[in-house]
Design a protein around this nucleic acid. Structure first.
Lengths: 210, 210, 210, 210
DNA sequence: CATGAATGAGGTTTCATTCAT
DNA sequence: AATGAATGAAACCTCATTCAT
């Protein structure tokens, strides 16, 4: 990468970082392009050389987390299709859990930002992404039910319950109001909730995270 | 109530109602005082005779739900203190659940608004209220654990899991993406989650709601 | 008119006047709302209580001249329809000329502004108005030709020639590069052009203007 | 011309052409250097290697028409001074008309651009050029009057009338609202106007144009 | 020669809030 | 009690021009 590209990439990264910080701090609605640009060490106009506007920056910021997440789901879907036995299926499931937790840890603040803005009106696109997420989780649950891996029931309801529970736990952790003993404990807790709700009584070996 | 007070109360109510609608529709940040006042059939300036500003209106709007909710918790706390047997304890618990669901149904849109703005930065007071709510739920769970009503464990974690699960279910219902067969089914589902998470195996008679 | 309405009317008038001056001075494109508002003795925001934006102000400004002008043409059309003899027809024609000149004198600067912006791209609506004007003039000329009042020929061409000639004369007068002996001389010159182009050899009594 | 100069000239020409197109399309004020440079296949910065700025480009664009026009007038002036008989004078006059029409046809879009911007405030230099043009035409008319070629009168007024008439005709043709049967008809019409206004009754042979 | 990143002034518009009527 | 005119801060975005590479 030449000197120019390098510099450009650095500035773009600075904007993503400062934008994230400002969005988190004051909400997307009241964070201003001016502030963000200044925080990233550049003039207002320069901002527009890198992003089309505040919304585009926001999209890029959360894309850092959402894009790999969705890519991962594509991956999982393919693996599940290929899985022949319940054990293979379960393994896919577990690895997925571990990958989600790792992504969530890597993009801690982005996830927090997503929590912050998810139900607001500032960024309507988020609800769409959320819905897509729910659909994918539900279809995975349905698959697990169909293959007899878990207690049968309403896959949608169960998925929502699990999602809500983990969401809330994660949120409290991120906000600092819930302190777990070690980074991987969240995955463990998630697994517990999962097994309780889905009536999973298989022995589930713990997956090391981080 | 005299003619004057009556009129005043009517206008205040109109503002609360219009404010709620606008806040829901566009978010607190972008709803304008102008719109709200006009929607309530009065001029911009008049608005300020009833509320100190947009934030004050928002506080009043969500207070309609939160104040009775908190009052109810005061009530529950007192009753729990007075309960001598596990059965009495359970009964308090169940009545509480029913009252919460009824409150939530009565103030449907307010609750939706709270969901919308809860994690945003627009109204910082909300996080405080949320925290208070969590503390109360946790202490109730702790009490139930102490009295041997439910499986022992981390009361905080369990409470968060339950709260998160119910929250998410309720949210999907409110948003229209989850349709339940009858109004009371949410309470039933909540009970199921509760029993699964807390290992409650007592027979729980269904409580009629609404 | 109450004190309030009076004040409001005064401010609106001030904006029209200042707007006209600024538009003339720097062109519509580079005149700023800020300047105009300041020039009219009010804050930027106040401007928007009176007009929807710069374009709306411009429309209002030129409407002061164009609206009466078009109304006058409606009038003339009606009168021409009612005219039974060539002499009556001619009289209508002459009175029209006098009224146009008077309007032009009354709204001197507005007309100058119209000249300024007419062929530019800033205000596309102007070309439409201009076209309407041309059509009306053409149909009047056609009528005069049909009734044998003037030498027959291409009414459109003749009208354009006359319009262009008078336009240019008027423009030079307004800009200050052409000084006529007395206010009414423009009307006289216009009449001369008219008679030359249209081959009018009737005796045309001079119409006093102003 | 060396390879370098050739390339340079080609780029300059590209800028002139693209600039003309953009200026016509959106007006000088809102055409951006960015667009023009991009349209001419080069970067923003490169533009400034060829022109001092947007205004300089505009000057150069209209200079393409105005410079030959003025040079032609120098020419005409010299020829008129040398003309000894009225017939020679008239011939000069006619050739001039033909040359003007040809220039106008060659630089069609430039002339249209001049019409567009002439009375605006964007480019103050235009009014100066226009004034110079008027002075020259006037002095030619004066000369023709002095030599008894045309009916005597106010040379300035007559010149303006003729200029205005032709201007308007040409404008309507360029804008597409007036369609003439053949390219040269505009010259014929101009001649008619001229003869009517100046009382020219000499036989004027038609000059082939284009 | 050519580039395009950077700047920052400048423009339009919205809105919470105050205050004279 | 009610009004709505007035304010001015603040936000977004564009663009001519400069300058290091």
């Amino acid at each position: 990468m030449g000197r120019r590209e390098e510099n450009k990439a650095r500035k773009r990264a600075a904007l993503l970082q400062t934008g994230l910080a400002m969005f988190l701090d004051q909400g997307v609605a009241s964070a201003s392009v001016e502030q963000i640009a200044a925080g990233a060490g550049m003039a207002r106009g320069t901002f527009y050389l890198y992003f089309d506007g505040k919304d585009a920056l926001f999209e890029a910021v959360i894309g850092q987390f959402f894009d790999p997440l969705m890519a991962m789901f594509d991956d999982v879907e393919a693996q599940l299709d290929a899985a022949k036995t319940p054990e293979a299926c379960l393994q896919v499931y577990q690895i997925m859990a571990a990958r989600i937790v790792m992504l969530g840890m890597t993009w801690r603040d982005v996830v927090l930002l997503v929590f912050q803005e998810m139900r607001g009106q500032s960024v309507p696109g988020l609800r769409t992404r959320e819905r897509a997420l729910i659909e994918r989780i539900t279809s995975l649950t349905q698959l697990a039910m169909d293959r007899g891996l878990v207690r049968k029931g309403d896959a949608r309801l169960a998925s929502l319950v699990i999602l809500g529970a983990i969401e809330r736990l994660y949120y409290e952790v991120l906000v600092g109001d819930l302190t777990l003993k070690e980074p991987g404990e969240l995955a463990t807790e998630a697994t517990v909730v999962l097994s309780r709700i889905l009536g999973l009584d298989l022995e589930m070996p713990r997956i090391p995270v981080g």
